[in-house]
């Protein structure tokens, strides 16, 4: 039904992109479960932040909501601060 509203190439592309992004989330989550060191988990978490940004941008295009780009901006800021905070904490041996 939305295929006519959105245009065929865009609807198909957002379908393919959503499948790829959800698969990427699953792979990163697998690394968080396996990750031998806490550093692996932090890097995977950082990547999940980036994938969330991608998913929000894909939603913005699919549902034609420009406001969602502001949410993507916030995600970019917060995921950077989180990674640096984790790096400082783990680098000083905070988890021991």
């Amino acid at each position: 039904m939305y295929f006519e509203e959105l245009g065929m190439p865009l609807a198909l592309a957002s379908l393919v992109a959503s499948i790829l992004l959800v698969a990427a989330l699953a792979l990163a989550l697998l690394r968080i479960v396996k990750g031998p060191t806490p550093f692996d988990r932090v890097v995977a978490l950082d990547l999940i932040g980036g994938i969330c940004l991608c998913i929000i941008v894909m939603f913005a295009i699919h549902f034609d909501q420009q406001v969602l780009l502001d949410a993507a901006f916030v995600i970019a800021i917060v995921s950077f601060i989180g990674t640096v905070a984790f790096a400082r904490y783990l680098g000083k041996g905070g988890d021991q």
């Binding site: 992109a17 992004l21 990427a24 990547l47 295009i61």
Partner: peptide, 20 residues
Amino acid sequence: VALLLILGAFFAFVAALGVL
């Protein structure tokens, strides 16, 4: 737009594959 959407999602998927 469709091409960029698929390419971007593909690169995000490749990143996750590399992390795993």
